[in-house]
């Protein structure tokens, strides 16, 4: 068994809730090294996502993710719009036509999301971006996707993302507004890496709470 479209919407609602709870926190992080709008932009984007998902019932999980991506692209306003938007759209393509998702699909979704972000942002690990938290998590999920204890694998992936966020404190920003700060960006944790970790955390919490069989 796996999660159906309604379950996926619940996971996305939880992600939106997490972003909204951390609106001030993300903006505070962004005010130190960026343009002080990350929390505002992300919560605007995700409230539009929730509104959109509630206005129509979609049974295709791929179409749901695509809708999320397109909504983020058109409502966020900052760099996280095209970045997370592309991530969700690319993930949606990979599971297009599926009415339910299993753990392998979850791994595929995050793998494709990472590819989308790297394609759009032309970023590599070590540049103080979303990639620094997402890639370590995806690596673990890919390496251990056949493990018997999926819950443990997700925990490990989430921990890797958290360590990735911590790591961004120690490096110089190479992308976006923060790159204008050069060495002065050291010591600050990256808002994008942080929002990505929070989204993963929300998704994994919800998946566990729904205790979907097979996941």
């Amino acid at each position: 068994m796996a999660t159906d479209a309604a379950g996926l919407v619940k996971i996305l609602e939880k992600v939106a809730e997490k972003i909204s709870e951390n609106r001030e926190f993300l903006t505070e992080l962004d005010s130190a090294i960026g343009d002080a709008d990350h929390g505002i932009n992300m919560s605007k984007g995700f409230s539009a996502v929730v509104e959109k998902l509630h206005s129509q019932k979609i049974d295709d999980c791929g179409a749901i993710l695509k809708t999320v991506g397109m909504t983020l692209v058109s409502t966020v306003g900052g760099a996280s719009g095209p970045l997370y938007g592309t991530a969700f759209m690319k993930a949606g393509q990979a599971v297009a036509g599926k009415s339910s998702l299993d753990f392998q699909d979850f791994v595929t979704i995050l793998e494709q999301a990472l590819e989308g972000i790297k394609y759009r942002g032309k970023a590599q690990r070590g540049e103080k971006t979303i990639v620094d938290s997402l890639e370590p998590a995806v690596d673990i999920l890919k390496d251990e996707k056949d493990s018997g204890d999926k819950g443990l694998v997700m925990e490990k992936a989430l921990n890797a993302a958290k360590e990735g966020v911590e790591y961004t404190r120690s490096i110089i920003a190479k992308k976006g507004r923060a790159s204008y700060l050069g060495e002065r960006s050291i010591g600050h944790q990256d808002p994008g890496a942080t929002s990505c970790y929070l989204m993963l955390q929300a998704a994994i919490e919800k998946i566990k709470e729904m205790s979907v069989n097979g996941l």
Partner: peptide, 12 residues
């Protein structure tokens, strides 16, 4: 600018 008059860009 964005559709709700913030500083930013809007692909649409």
């Amino acid at each position: 600018g964005t559709c709700d008059n913030r500083l930013g860009t809007d692909p649409v």
